[in-house]
Amino acid sequence: MVEIHPFWDERKLLVFVSLIIVAAGVAVIEIDAAKHGRQSALDVIVSSVYTPLQTGLTRAAGALAGGVHDVLHAGEYAAQNRALQDKVDRLAAANERLQADAAENRDLRRLLLMKQAVAGDAVVADVVGYVPEGTRREVTIDRGARDGVHRDSVVVGGEGLVGHVVSTGPHESRVLLLIDPQSAVPAYLQRTRTWGIVTGTWLHARMKYIDQNARLQDGDTVVTGHGEIYPSGIVIGRVREIDRKDNGLYQVAVLDPAVDFHYLTHVLVYTSP
């Protein structure tokens, strides 16, 4: 009888054969699935368990690594942050300057075009002040009598009529704005040639004394009519609302001024009488 060496006895042989059979079965299934580009049942089960675990583990490790990295580089980040903040501040200031320059450039271009369209002489002026108490809608400009500006000189902006000069000094003038209630500008509707008088309502303007039979429309353009002060054809604004009463003598139209009086910086002053 052959004696089996205890290092490789029958029990171990049985275990080994069993293991190899099972492993080979699993391997064949896995190889077959892989070669056909599909997942075996074992793949599906293991993946459904492992994938969420891997996702969680990856995220946790990423967060941990990010946190550690942030802590290790905190000083560097702080210096970078300061440098970037300085840069942002400088760029923001430069951007504001450029935007202001661009806006000024646009205003001046419009004024230049308007000046070229004016028959007589005109000077460009900067708006330098407002009435301190706000009791009147007036502005102060940096051009006066020495620049040829005189009382009743017409003042326009890039978009249209601003007002007229009510007083002049040697180097400055005061301009009554179109939207001041004291202002009265002869005007007509460009589409229908219907006349009226435009006065201010503090924030907007109103065209009064419009013929009751005139057919107004929202958006109609209102321009200056030739009078003692104003030349003809300067845009005042557009009709926003129409107030027409059947028993009234006239119609009234509320206008949106063409000029934005909140951002008035440069104006053109007609110096020819």
Binding site: A27, E30, I31, A34, D43, V46
Partner: peptide, 9 residues
């Protein structure tokens, strides 16, 4: 387990 996660058998 390794094969199920891409070991190929």
């Amino acid at each position: 387990l390794e094969d199920a996660l891409g070991g190929g058998g």
